[in-house]
């Protein structure tokens, strides 16, 4: 059954077999290319520093979890993860909270300057963070937000809000307008309609938007490093500073790296069925 619905073999049924093999080879090669660097990181995280520098091996000779123990028992390390997750979550909620009504307005109404406004929002996604690093530093210092989670969360709205508006607008356009009208006739007020009826309808869109907000806030380093010193320092930044300070303990560094991959991997696993849908709208 799969061979008849498969577009590649459907195009040339007589030569289906060799072609399938090529596809598999390409796919496996690509996945290996994706996974080998990650394997290498995991491998080094399971070795002691002496073993890493002692000789070249393809897999750990004496696997040890000591590196992870160092990180999980030292507050200056694990607080980095807490800080990162804190500002990422604040940012995701904040971005979605302001983007939802705006996306509704863009998907349902024409109003003065709507197209210009939409493009202007998108330009913020295009702004190089390097341009904003210094002014952000001064702005947040002057309002007393420097080195707080809120500062980083607000700074990341720069690129996440336009993104969320863009994604949500695409999903909202797919909901027929008749639903809104019926709800108003039934006596729903706008806020009640929006929360009770409309949001459940675009739940997958909200999921996709949240995924991308999480992703871009989680991976960003330049702004989060510039805006924090001690109290809200993200794990990524702790890693870069520890590299220079501790004389390069490769094992601990790799363990910290592996731990930063885990939240992302979990999030992907939960939204795996929606990702393709979100991409299909072409709105990333």
């Amino acid at each position: 059954m799969t061979t008849t619905t498969d577009p590649l073999s459907a195009a040339a049924p007589g030569r289906a077999m060799p072609r399938i093999r090529t596809r598999h080879v390409v796919m496996v090669a690509y996945l290996l290319f994706m996974l080998i660097p990650i394997y290498w990181l995991v491998k080094m995280s399971l070795q002691t520093n002496r073993e890493i520098l002692g000789g070249f091996t393809l897999w750990p000779q004496n696997p040890t979890l000591d590196n992870y123990r160092v990180i999980l028992t030292d507050a200056s390390w694990y607080m980095g993860y807490v800080n990162s997750i804190t500002y990422v979550v604040i940012n995701t909620f904040l971005s979605l909270a302001v983007a939802l009504p705006a996306a509704y307005a863009f998907s349902r109404y024409r109003f003065l300057g709507d197209k210009h406004l939409f493009f202007w929002l998108l330009t913020n996604r295009m702004a190089p963070p390097a341009v904003f690093a210094l002014p952000f530093f001064q702005l947040y210092s002057s309002v007393g937000l420097f080195d707080t989670h809120l500062a980083v969360a607000l700074a990341h709205t720069l690129f996440n809000v336009p993104l969320a508006v863009w994604i949500l607008e695409g999903f909202m356009r797919g909901v027929p307008k008749e639903i809104d009208e019926t709800a108003y006739i039934d006596g729903y007020s706008f806020p009640r309609f929006f929360v009770k009826i409309f949001m459940p309808l675009i739940a997958s869109g909200i999921g996709v938007a949240a995924f991308f907000c999480f992703m871009f806030s989680w991976v960003e380093l330049l702004l989060s490093r510039t805006l924090t010193a001690v109290n809200a320092q993200p794990i990524a930044s702790i890693m870069t500073r520890t590299v220079s300070a501790s004389g390069l303990d490769w094992g601990v560094l790799c363990a910290a790296g592996v731990l930063t991959i885990i939240p992302g991997a979990l999030v992907i696993y939960f939204v795996r069925n929606y990702i393709a849908k979100g991409f299909a709208l072409g709105r990333v």
Partner: peptide
């Protein structure tokens, strides 16, 4: 598996 590199913090990508 393919989406995995997209969610690794950029400096960790550099470190790798």
């Amino acid at each position: 598996l393919m989406a995995l590199p997209l969610l690794i913090p950029w400096n960790v990508v550099g470190t790798i």
